[in-house]
Design a binder for these strands. Structure first.
Length: 862
RNA sequence: GCCGGGGUGGCGGAACUGGUAGACGCGCCAGACUCAAAAUCUGGUAUGGGUAACCAUGUGCGAGUUCGAUUCUCGCUCCCGGCACCA
């Protein structure tokens, strides 16, 4: 080995040899245990960012560790290639999305290879390739035949100037991001997948996902939002039709004082025909956002429709209002309002001076202050005629039974989850494989005519999808009858592609959607990706897995056995207030920070002009905050191993990582000191075999540290996924090895074992330099990627003495060093005899003594 | 607004099952080496008091449970993620 650590040379040579030897290509092998390690594939935005580096390093560490355990490890990589940014690039720079996307993929692929990730590149796929998306088109037609897809109208954000549909992200303060026009709500026919048919299964199966974080499962449960209640029909006072609502609280029925319907509700639209004020109100709701977060935060407004419904039990007339916060896409688009027992209803009733009638009271007899807010707990009924005095369960049952007998109610399970709207009015996506006859009849595309290829050679004019103005794309004829057909010009939501790619990776060249190789590899053993996907992507992928299972394509019902959600990568921001409301952000690389004697940042100046800039908060690396750190620059300066080591060391994978350039240098220093110590050791020539029976006390202590480190690191990597503490443990070991200067035969043998251990434990994290060190330590024949994970020698872990903490009233006052098997009575008397303890308890009496074996003694005094 | 997560030295973080708060690293300070610098090595580094032993305080804020709370419970606060067309 070279004396000097030169990452560039080592890494490129090793990566070339991995590539030529196809080290990470895998085949199904039923004699070996498989391990499928998957990281969420990237959107090819142009360059890798630190979030990618972090995500893929975590996956690579797990993959390489599993391989050292002897498993048949598959780690694939591909590209989530359809999406909005490619269209923006086309609009801004007139580059066709296909060309832009493919050149980004080529660049990012070289970046991933430069980081040394152990991917099986033979399995690479890009979702924009017809060979990939043809199968989801085929699958969609299958689902159509099963009745699991349907078409109905839904609201979109419509930009009246650009004449196009906008994504929520493209609507800023109610206006189109390019045109600045006030965005309108527009209803258009769109395609849906019936995910609600799987709601119960998606909910129930969460209980079996032991390898998923509780937080993600909770979010999915709340998202699905199963509730049991009643579908209730209120008869309109003036005619024989009914207003249908869903409620989980029939016990509060006597407190219903008004009904609220969505602006698009038929009752509201009918009332608007006769009342211009109502029509105006509904029109004013037309600029409402389709985003729930915006709707929930806006001012709650409404208007009486001037009609009433009959209360099913009292016959009283209840007014019907139209309200901007009731959404047509939720349930029936109408709600029964009980202001005394629902906070939102209470606020609306208070604003519009509607009656608030309390009908539920706490069981303990207290009277809640209804003037201050709604009482939302369950309790005992009052003001409810013959139901007074009943509790929630009895009231629910008795009121429900009566309404059922009247034919006014049906028990119903309702979900918050809505069917998945998969239509997008975009160009750069997978064409939806359906055709329409002249009268609107739907004809799914025949399997033999798939794929419906997205035309890639296009001229981009304006901002809306070129497909909408390409008759050569949408004008076609029926293959048998020859009658004219119009092709759907909408494309799929890009979540469609990412809902099944994990299955395609098992058999990327299959002559069907998947073949029987999925049975060997699926389910994914561990899936790694950002927490922001906790609900949507991860729920859709689970849904697709069940659809594929029910189509007979595979047997697994859940796609991901374990889930590791990664935190964001953040960095401090620097800016100047240049007026116009928006600060100007400067790259941290362009700023010089001055610190005080303690290292606190006190001032920052822009390096080029020497003038001060403000030090902002630590935020997620982004273009808008100009606080991104380009991985490429760091890889070129320090090598891939240092970047990998730092990202794994800086924080645990599920927490946010705050980027620090100087700490990166620390990671580089650590590798260099490991390199130096190994070099110094091997320069002295071969060493004797270790004989644990003849070690002296210091050698035994050092060897115990080696095996404690193996124990700790193994647990950290395999069970806890805490790579930062695993690395810290190896750093401690290296410090101990560096301090020992025992040149005796057995001293050198222990050092050899220590260095081999450090190299093996770090191999998954920094695979390049450890490969060189492994060979220098005398392992020329066995490649490090397939070296066995080190085993703990339990005998080496024995200790002669343990440290016991002595507390008085919970405060540490002394330490004792005792034999591990020391009796409790002896420890107590030693603790009481300690001079510092004696002094503190001198004028007090001992109440009791708590002994935690092997850890501490707490003397409680008064 | 709703759902989920988080707040520990100058900084990133550690403390895994309620048992020594601050492992490991960065930064900073001092020293060694050097003509000098870089690199490297050694020591120190929560805050306040004390020469020291040691003492007091301290894990966002306020309460509670406990012999003992960063860890459990309740209330609050600030920050972050998601909210169905960003991916």
């Amino acid at each position: 080995m070279e004396e000097r650590y030169d990452p560039g040379a080592i890494e490129s040579a090793l990566q070339a040899s991995w590539q030529s030897a196809r080290t990470f290509a895998v085949q199904e092998d039923r004699t070996r245990e498989k391990f499928y390690c998957l990281s969420m594939f990237p959107y090819p935005s142009g360059r890798l960012h630190m979030g990618h580096v972090r995500n893929y390093t975590i996956g690579d560490v797990i993959s390489r560790y599993q391989r050292m355990l002897g498993k048949n490890v598959m780690q694939p990589m591909g590209w989530d290639a359809f999406g909005l940014p490619a269209e923006n690039a086309a609009i801004e720079n007139n580059i066709p999305p296909a060309e832009w996307t493919r050149s980004n993929i080529d660049y990012m692929r070289t970046q991933l290879q430069r980081l040394g990730f152990a991917y099986d590149w033979d399995r690479e796929l890009a979702t924009c390739d017809p060979q990939y998306y043809q199968w989801e088109q085929w699958f969609f037609t299958q689902l159509y035949d099963k009745g699991l897809v349907y078409r109905k109208t839904a609201v979109v954000n419509w930009d009246p100037i650009d004449q196009t549909v906008l994504a929520n992200e493209q609507v800023i303060d109610g206006r189109g991001w390019r045109s600045g026009a006030l965005v309108e709500r527009r209803e258009i026919p769109q395609w849906f997948l019936r995910i609600t048919a799987y709601a119960d299964e998606l909910l129930g199966d969460l209980d079996d996902l032991e390898g998923w974080p509780e937080a993600v499962k909770t979010m999915q449960r709340n998202w699905i939002g199963r509730s049991e209640g009643l579908s209730l029909k209120f008869k309109l006072s003036d005619d024989n039709s009914f207003l249908e609502v869903f409620t989980t609280r029939p016990d509060t029925l006597y407190g219903a004082t008004y009904m609220a319907v969505a602006p698009e509700h038929p009752l509201a639209l009918t009332a608007a025909q006769h009342d211009p004020a109502i029509a105006d109100f509904i029109a004013s709701c037309a600029t409402l956002s389709t985003a729930e977060a915006v709707v929930e935060k806006m001012e709650k407004r409404g208007m009486s429709l001037g009609i009433t419904v009959d209360h099913p039990l009292t016959g009283e007339k209840i007014p019907v209002w139209v309200a901007n916060f009731v959404l047509m896409s939720y349930g029936t688009g109408a709600v029964m309002s009980v202001p005394a027992h629902d906070q939102r209803d209470w606020e609306f009733a208070t604003t519009y001076d509607l009656p608030i009638i309390p009908v539920v009271f706490p069981a303990n007899g207290q009277i809640p202050d209804i003037a201050a807010g709604a009482y939302v707990e369950k309790g005992i009924l009052k003001n409810s005629a013959e139901y007074d005095g009943l509790d929630y369960a009895r009231a629910f049952e008795q009121i429900t039974e009566r309404l059922e007998a009247q034919g006014r109610a049906e028990r119903k399970v309702q979900y918050r989850l809505r069917d998945w709207l998969v239509s997008r009015q975009r160009y750069w996506g997978c064409p939806i494989p359906v055709l329409y006859e002249e009268d609107g009849n739907i004809v799914p595309e025949a399997a033999a005519r798939l794929p419906v290829k997205l035309p890639e050679q296009i001229e981009w004019q304006g901002v809306s999808s070129p497909l909408k103005s390409m008759p050569e794309f949408f004008d076609t004829t029926h293959p048998e009858s020859g009658e004219p057909l119009t092709r759907e010009t909408d494309t799929f939501d890009t979540f469609f592609e990412s809902s099944w790619y994990f299955a395609r990776f098992c058999c990327p060249d299959a002559k069907a959607m998947v073949d029987d190789r999925v049975e060997y590899w699926m389910p994914v053993d561990i899936y790694i990706g950002g927490i922001e996907h906790a609900v949507l992507h991860l729920l859709y992928a689970r849904f697709f897995q069940k659809l594929m299972r029910d189509a007979g394509l595979m047997t697994a019902g859940e796609p991901f056995t374990r889930l590791l959600t990664q935190g964001m990568v953040c960095k401090e921001t620097y800016f100047r207030d240049v007026g116009q409301g928006k600060p100007q952000y400067f790259s941290p690389a362009a700023v010089t920070v001055e610190t005080d004697a303690k290292g606190r940042a006190i001032k920052a100046i822009l390096t080029t002009d020497g003038e001060p800039v403000e030090i902002g908060s630590v935020e997620k690396m982004s273009k808008s905050k100009n606080n991104g750190v380009d991985p490429q620059v760091l890889i070129e300066r320090y090598g891939a191993d240092t970047v990998r080591l730092y990202t794994m060391f800086a924080s645990p994978p599920d927490q946010t990582l705050e980027w620090s350039d100087s700490a990166v240098e620390g990671a580089f220093r650590f590798i260099r000191s490991l390199w130096r110590l190994t070099h110094k050791h091997v320069q002295k020539g071969a060493c004797a075999l270790l004989d644990s029976a003849i070690l002296n006390a210091d050698q035994k202590t050092l060897r115990r540290q080696i095996h404690e480190t193996i124990d700790k690191v193994t647990d950290d990597i395999s069970r806890r996924y805490k790579f930062n503490t695993a690395i810290a443990a190896v750093m401690e070991l290296l410090n101990a090895l560096t301090r020992s200067s025992d040149d005796s035969e057995q001293g050198r043998a222990v050092l050899q074992e220590g260095l081999e251990t450090a190299v093996l434990l770090l191999a998954p994290i920094i695979p390049h330099c450890t490969d060189t060190l492994w060979r220098a330590l005398g392992h020329d024949l066995e490649p490090l990627v397939d070296a066995g994970w080190p085993q703990v020698d339990r005998g080496a872990l024995a200790r002669d003495a343990v440290t016991i903490v002595v507390q008085v009233n919970g405060k540490k006052r002394a330490e004792l060093s005792v034999a591990p098997d020391c009796a409790a009575e002896q420890m107590e008397s030693m603790a009481l005899a300690d001079p510092n303890v004696e002094r503190i308890i001198a004028d007090k009496s001992v109440v009791k003594i708590v002994v935690v074996p092997g850890r501490l003694i707490n003397i409680v005094v008064q």
